Simulated scan of single mutants.
Amino acid sequence: MDALIAVWETFFDFDAMRVALPDLLTVGLPNTLILAVSSGIVGTVLGMLLAVAGLSRRRWLRWPARVYTDVLRGLPAAVTILLIGVGFAPIGLMVWGPNPYPFGILALGLIAGAYIGEIFRSGIQSVDVGQTEAARAIGFSGGAAMRLVIIPQGVRRVLPALVNQLIALIKDSSLIYFLGLLSSQRELFRIGQDAAANTGNQSALVLAGLFYLVITIPLTHVVNAIDKRLREGRRVDAVDPAEADDFDEEMDSIAGQESVR
């Protein structure tokens, strides 16, 4: 019984949680979201470029994209973060001072780009080739067909996987602590770890883990809802006829412009 009480007090000391809560809310949570969202934007843009380059018929575009993807997916995330964050630290000190966030965001974005690029590439390749032929038949150029027809369909098919990658970024943001953080720069994990190290009690770290769950579990349900909606589709009787007519007119207009070109 004493052992169980000791374990409970080690992980669920509510006084220790209460002490760590303000820093987790006002410092750790905003910093974690900044890291995840910023690196997610970088990774998404880079991933789309890698996907298009990886599908190109030009070797000078295709092979660098594939080599980049293989290397960044093969390296541990901590190694990439340290190589970029520590290796380029002197440049960062001269430009923006002792703030590891820019290089941390860059490193996370580069890692995410390699994974997101493969997600986009698989989505684009899953679109039936007949879609391209149909777009060309109504006057679209090859580039316009890819940009306006193929890529939107491919992205829609991989939205759940894309959100899953964002969830992974939220968790990987904890690795930024390798670069050394000031008190105001700490994210959720670092605050929980510091409190646990100072008190010898793991309750603050457990509370930090609960914060991660509060962020990631709703996103997981969003992924499931998106996946269900994409698999079931939209009810036909729910489509506004006027909306459908406007869409047809817009597509005819785009096709006409491409034909003129």
Rank of each mutant, 00 (worst) to 15 (best):
S174C: 01
R186K: 15
L162T: 12
R186G: 04
G154P: 08
R186C: 06
G180R: 02
K171V: 08
V155Q: 06
P160E: 01
A161K: 12
V163E: 00
A161V: 06
L179A: 04
S174T: 07
V155E: 11
I167K: 03
L181E: 07
R157S: 15
L169M: 05
L169D: 01
R156M: 12
L169V: 02
I176M: 05
Y177Q: 14
N164T: 08
I167A: 09
R156E: 13
A168H: 00
A161H: 09
S183V: 11
I176H: 04
L179S: 01
L175T: 05
V155G: 11
R186P: 02
G180E: 02
L162D: 10
P160H: 03
I170M: 13
A161M: 12
L182P: 05
L181F: 04
L175Y: 01
S173I: 05
R186N: 09
A168W: 10
V163G: 07
P160D: 00
L179M: 08
R186H: 12
Q185A: 09
V163T: 13
L182T: 14
L162Q: 10
A168T: 13
F178I: 15
G154H: 06
V163F: 08
L166E: 08
A161W: 02
L175C: 03
V155T: 12
L162I: 08
L179K: 00
P160K: 02
N164R: 05
D172P: 03
K171P: 01
K171I: 04
K171M: 07
S174I: 00
I176D: 00
Y177V: 15
R186L: 08
L169N: 09
V158E: 05
L169H: 00
L182E: 14
L182W: 09
L169F: 01
L181T: 04
Q165P: 01
Y177M: 15
L162K: 00
R157F: 09
I167T: 14
L159Q: 03
F178Q: 15
Y177D: 13
L179G: 04
S174N: 03
V163K: 03
